[in-house]
Structures are given as C-alpha cells and as structure tokens.
Design a protein around this nucleic acid. Structure first.
Lengths: 376, 376
DNA sequence: GTGAAAGCGCTAACAC
DNA sequence: GTGTTAGCGCTTTCAC
C-alpha cells in the first residue's frame, strides 16, 4: 500500500476529480462546463470530503446527519474532517433535494420603524434558535410591490412567510393564492376577511381605553389621527375611539378626525389645521408618525401640551419618556409579536398547529406620561 | 389530431408525468419517492409548463431568459402561459446550476437600532432594484454568533455579505477565510487591519468637531462616553476627542472617559457617577445608547442641560428635535451608507470594482440643538 | 429554432 | 455499516 502525505493526498483527490471530467469530456467530445474545473478546485463539497476520507458521499452525508446506520468511529472521523476543511453543505442542493429551504420571509411596510424593527428582532431571534434564515422585504406601503414579493416567494424559496400588510393592500386574491401554497402568518397589520393565522394587539380596547384616559384627565373634545384605515387594525382602533366617544356622550364629529395624507408635509398641514380650527383638547393618534407633527404644530401655534391639548399615541418609541413633554403611549409588544408569529410559523412547519384561522391577541400597554397629565 | 379542452389538457399532462414515474417505478421496482407525486400535482414547474405548451423544458427555459435563439412568437406564448400559471422558477434549482443565489446577507449587531434599521432600509432598496433577496442576521454583539453566521454563509448561500462588526469581534481569522470565498463589504463598524472594502463615516473629524463645538459654547471639562473601542470606528472617535482636547490645551484626564458596561443599568450607574464625581460641563457620547442615560442622570442629579452640562452624541434618532432639551447630534448618513455598501457589492459582482482594499468615507452631519446651546 | 441529455451537490432508496 | 445510483428543477451543450 502506497502512503501519501497530506498535500499529496489532496493533489491526488484533485486529479481524480479532474480525470473524471476529462474522461467524460473525451467520451462525449464536449467542452467542459465553463467554470467547472475552477469550482472543483475552489469550494469544498461532499465528494471531495468523501474522497479525502476514502468514503462514499452517501456515507459522509449520513454521518453528518447523525444517522444511526453509521458507526460512531466513522461519524467522528467525518465530523473531524468536515470541521478541518470548513465544510458546509450546499444549501441549494439539499433544499432542492429535500424541498425545504430553512428560510422564512418577513414582509413589512418599512424596516426603519420602531415597531417593525423590534418585531423583526423577535423573529430573527426565534429563527436563529432553529437555524433558520430570515429574508427581509419592505413594501413601502405599496400593494404592487407587496404582490410582486409574494409572487416571487411562490417558488419554494421560503418555507413560510410572516407579513404585516401594506396600507394600500387591496389585492386579496394574490394573498390567498400564496397562502394556499406556503404557510403564511399575519402580524399586526391584518385583514379580517383574509383567512389565516393572525397575531394582533387589542387595538379596539387600546383605543377605547386611551380615550377614556383622556376623558378622565379632563378632555371634552377629542380628535383622532386616522391611519391604516384600509386594514382591520386601523378600523378597530377607529371603532374603539368612536365607541368611547359614544359612551361618554360626546358628539360624533367627523371634522375631528384627520386622515393621514400622502407625505409628512401634508400630514403636518392637516394636523395643524385640525388643532387650529377645531381646537380639540385631546388627540389620539393611531400611529407614531402622526403624533410627532402634533408637537411641532403645538409649538408653532403656541399651545401647551398637556395644558391646552393632551396627546396620546400608539407608539414604540424607545425614548417617549424624554420627549418634551414626555409622551403618553400605547405601547405594542412588538418584540413579543415577532416571537409569537415566528413561533406559530414553526409550529405550522412541525404540524403542531391546528387552527388555520385563529387570531392571537396580545395586550398593548398604556403608559401614562406628561402629555396627558390632568392640569387644573 | 385530437383536440383537448383546457381541463382535459391539464389532466393529460398530469397523467403523462404520473406515468413517467410509474414506468420508472416498475422498471426499477422501487418505491416512489415519498412525496414526489404530491409535489408533481402541487407546484408548477418548468416541465409542466413545457408540457402545457407542447415544448421542451429547454426551450421554455431559453424563452424565459429571453434567449436570441427562440422565435419571438414562442417567447410570447411561453411568457403568457408562465404568467397564467403563476410560474416562478425554483431558485434552488437555478442556483445550484448557475452557482448564483441572487441573495446577499446583512450581518449587524442589532436590527432594532435607528442606525442599522436605516442602513438595512438602504440596502433593501438597492437589492430590490436588482431583484436580489436580503438575508438578515443579528449578532447581539457576540463574536461567537457572528462567526457562526459567517461560517454558515460559506456554502454559497449568498453571493455577497455586508457586515457591521460586533464590538466583541476578535476572530479576524474567520473573517479572512470568509472574504476569500465570498465578496464582503464592511460598513460603519470596521477593523482597519482586516483587508476589504469599507464604508465608514468621518468618525475622527466628527468627534473632533463635536468637541470643538462644545468648547466654542463654553465647555472647559469634557467627558467622553466610550464604546466600540475594540473597533477602528470607536478608536477613531476616541482619537478625535483626545486630539481636540490637546488642541485646546485641556488636560488628558482618563477619569473623564467612561467605558460602556455590560448592560444599561451598569451604564446608567457609571454615567451618573461620572457626572456626579467629575462634574464635567460637557459630554460627547460615542453612541446614542449612552446619551439617553445622561438625560436621566441629570434629572436625578438635578442638573440642567445645557446650563450645567452640554451634551452631544453620535445618533440617528429621528426625533432628537423633540427631546427635552432637544439633542445636538452627530447624524450619520445611515441610509446612504446602506445604499453605498450594497452598490459596491453589486459592482464587485459585475467585476466593476477594482479596489479590494478601499475605504469610502461619507460625511456625518453635526446638527446643533438645545443640548449644547451656550448659556451665559 | 427546438429537443435531448448531462450535471450542479446532495440525499433517499436500494443493494450488499 | 457502507457503496451505488437516481433524481430534486433548472440551464447549458451539443445535435439536428
């Protein structure tokens, strides 16, 4: 038996692989695949690993997946060599074979948003625990982009999808088509009339309680900054506001409701106009982005928060405490929503989820601060 | 010639595929791959598409890639049918074949951070333009997690990597190994002694100018909240601070430098201690997370910002303006960094980048606000 | 201009 | 306990 030194062994392995190709090339009289030889020389794959160990690829594959058919001695050898050569199985090959991608997709309107980045944080944590990969897509609130992402994900690229819908969403048909083919879990921004598992917060109750909080602290005329109204999420917040007004026998004055415009300049103008014209003494904002302009508008109109106007907003601002004045917020458990949504997706993968149309509702937190303090 | 209705045609196609498998199964006397038939009936693939069009898979493939060999009439037919059947090529198959994944990875310490979420926003925008997918990983500042992500990406899962290093990073060896095999672009949190393309901001100048700004507004004793000091990014900020002190003939007092601790409670204690004991009249914070505790500490120590203590911080807080008092910030162009980093990665892909060791420096913006206002 | 067939790297089925 | 082989869906090479 001839003994090889390590480097000689590697060379031998390379020549062995090369000769296979050369033989085939001669046999078929074909040109070699453009960069095949280069690839063979470059990356380390299961064949080379097997060659190095004088084993078959199948055995190596089994050893790496800790199959019971393989002797523990062989397993140890394989694992050691795999580590030494930094071998990582090619995911595309195994995915193609096993029809599993070990990847989930997260589709959100914007990443650079306190709520969504916290939710993604939660999702990524859960995914990492399970050695899953996370693809991120942002729709910028465009239904068209959203649909195109969904269509691109139909091809088996991901095992499941977590989605928070764009405001503009109308195309429910596409959503249904997708969720027929790949598990989808909706979070926060949902549509009640689309079937599926949904994780939301108690939007109705939160809005209702927010109004109650304003009333208790002396508000008589409460405005509402409306957003997400194409989604169930937004509709519930609005309904909570309206029902709370009714409960307090406040008139239902639509002029007190401002609907978010097309950009932040327009929003600012609309909000300033609301405050100047209608003179509300309290405002509930259904999203954080509409609460900030209130601060600026009050500054410009020389109104004092909370003396002249009390403000409360759905928000995941980390530093609401440090605003001037500190902002009373309805704090959604964004991280937990991400964890929960991802957790359910994995349960679906493992066939441990039996409620294809369940809605899980997490509780938001009303954090009372300066902006709604009673002033006598 | 027999004509089929559409549904009959589909059935025929299915039976045709089924019969292929059944024949093989008989021939080989093997059991059918577990879920093969189900798969065949489920997803739409190139074979079924081809079958539907009475073409070969090869022709369909070429038509979809707009090859010049295919007649425009055929192309049109294929495209139409592909659209009708919602056909999306299986990415794992094409990736396996073409050794391209159309995917990039982004590795950051934390997603839920204004700077990183903005950078990811920029990256995602560029990726979407090019029909690339974006994988997200967060290291939570752990070098171990970072290395394990990098190793998992060695297998060809991604065409390139964008990374902002964890503070804890020490394992430069692994980084080198990875960047030998797959293009890597570093952004913001970089190590000068690792080779590679880097996108950073003018950290040294920013810190230097921040100190100058404090001095100009009357500060005589300026503290520094130190972070990222294991990285070049942090070292440059510190050096900027130190050099500016020297320029102003301020003593180089290490007691004025507080190094970020292991958690936010410890940070708060350290910072409060610095302010109480050393009584600085100005503080430069090298990261946003250390600036916020200053507000709380001043509140507790009954010190006024900016009268007793002026504060300036590296930060991408959207609402620095609304803090009380509004915070003077060194604003990094986070979105642009993301765009730039992704842009360079794509240039590398297209072999249009020839500077494997270049550092691109974008300018940060000093935004002067209340927290550093001169008080006389 | 189109079809047949090989092969990307891996793993399941079967053989021994 | 290990080796051989086929095939995941796609693209490319060669044949016509």
């Amino acid at each position: 038996m001839i003994k090889f030194s390590k480097s000689e062994k590697i060379k031998t392995c390379f020549y062995q692989i090369e000769s296979i190709y050369l033989r085939k090339r001669l046999r078929n009289n074909r040109t070699l695949h453009t960069n095949k030889l280069f690839q063979e020389m470059g990356g380390i794959n299961i064949k080379k690993l097997a060659c190095e160990l004088n084993l078959s690829a199948a055995t190596v594959s089994r050893a790496l997946r800790d199959s019971h058919e393989i002797s523990s001695e062989t397993k140890a050898r394989v694992l050691e060599m795999a580590k030494k050569l930094n071998y990582e199985p090619n995911p595309f090959a195994s995915n193609l074979r096993g029809q599993k991608s070990k990847t989930i997709a997260v589709i959100v309107p914007e990443i650079a948003n306190n709520f969504f980045s916290l939710a993604i944080n939660g999702i990524e944590d859960v995914a990492r625990e399970r050695d899953y990969h996370v693809l991120i897509y942002q729709t910028h609130e465009s239904s068209e982009i959203e649909t195109s992402f969904l269509m691109r994900l139909l091809s088996g690229r991901v095992d499941g999808i977590l989605i928070s819908l764009a405001c503009e969403t109308v195309d429910k048909e596409h959503l249904r088509k997708v969720s027929d083919q790949v598990p989808v879990v909706f979070f926060d921004r949902v549509h009640d009339d689309i079937e599926g598992v949904k994780i939301t917060t108690d939007d109705y109750e939160s809005a209702y309680n927010a109004v109650q909080h304003l009333v208790e602290n002396g508000c008589k005329k409460i405005g509402y900054l409306l957003a997400l109204n194409t989604l169930s999420t937004g509709k519930k917040r609005l309904q909570g506001y309206l029902d709370a007004l009714k409960y307090n026998h406040f008139p239902d004055d639509r002029k007190l409701i401002v609907e978010s415009g097309i950009n932040s300049d327009e929003n600012y103008a609309l909000i300033k106009n609301l405050i100047a014209e209608q003179k509300p003494d309290g405002i509930l904002s259904s999203i954080e982005d509409l609460a900030m302009p209130c601060y600026y508008a009050c500054k410009e109109l020389e109104l004092n928060i909370p003396a002249d106007l009390k403000l409360i907003s759905f928000s995941n601002l980390a530093h609401a405490e440090l605003l001037s004045p500190s902002l009373t917020t309805i704090n959604q458990p964004a991280f937990e929503i991400g964890v929960e949504a991802a957790g359910i997706l994995f349960k679906i993968f493992n066939k441990r989820w039996y409620e294809p149309n369940e809605t899980i509702i997490l509780k938001s937190n009303l954090i009372k601060r300066e902006s709604t303090r009673a002033v006598f």
